[in-house]
Amino acid sequence: MFDIIIRRRIDPALNRIGHRLASAGITADALTLTGFGIGLGAVPALALHAFWIALGCILVNRIADGLDGAVARAALARAGPPSTADGPAVGTDRGGFLDIACDFLFYAAVPFGFALADPAANALPAAFLIFSFVGTGSSFLAFAAIAARRGLSSAPQTGLKAIHYLGGLTEGTETIALFIVICLWPGLFPWAAWIFGSLCLLTTATRFVAAMRQFR
Rank of each mutant, 00 (worst) to 15 (best):
L178R: 05
F189T: 05
D99Y: 11
R78F: 07
T158I: 09
G137V: 02
S153Y: 08
F104S: 03
H164T: 04
L141K: 02
Y107M: 10
C200H: 08
I130A: 04
G96L: 12
D118F: 15
G137A: 10
L201N: 04
F131P: 00
A115V: 10
P119K: 09
F196A: 03
F189Q: 03
S83R: 14
T136D: 02
A101F: 15
G168S: 02
A120F: 11
G96E: 08
D86Q: 13
A162Q: 05
G91C: 14
D103F: 15
E171K: 06
F131V: 00
G87T: 09
L178K: 01
F112L: 15
A142Q: 07
C183P: 08
G159Q: 05
Y107P: 01
T136Q: 04
P111G: 07
I180T: 08
W191C: 03
L184M: 14
G137Y: 05
W194N: 01
R94H: 13
G167I: 10
G87L: 12
P156M: 06
P82Y: 03
D99E: 13
G137C: 06
G95D: 05
A108M: 15
P125M: 08
L202D: 00
F97C: 02
I146F: 06
P88H: 09
A144L: 11
A120H: 06
A108Q: 09
L169I: 12
T158R: 09
S139V: 04
I182L: 07
P186I: 12
L105R: 03
I130C: 07
F104W: 15
A142F: 15
R78G: 00
I100L: 15
N122F: 15
A155P: 00
S83K: 14
L202G: 00
L76G: 03
L141M: 15
L201C: 09
F143G: 00
G80R: 02
G80L: 09
T92H: 10
A120S: 12
A177S: 11
P88V: 07
V181W: 14
I163H: 06
A147T: 01
R78W: 05
S83N: 09
L201T: 03
A120P: 02
A85R: 14
I100K: 07
F106I: 06
L201F: 14
G137E: 00
A74L: 09
T158M: 14
G95A: 09
L169A: 02
A147V: 00
C200R: 07
V134D: 00
G113E: 10
L160M: 03
A155S: 02
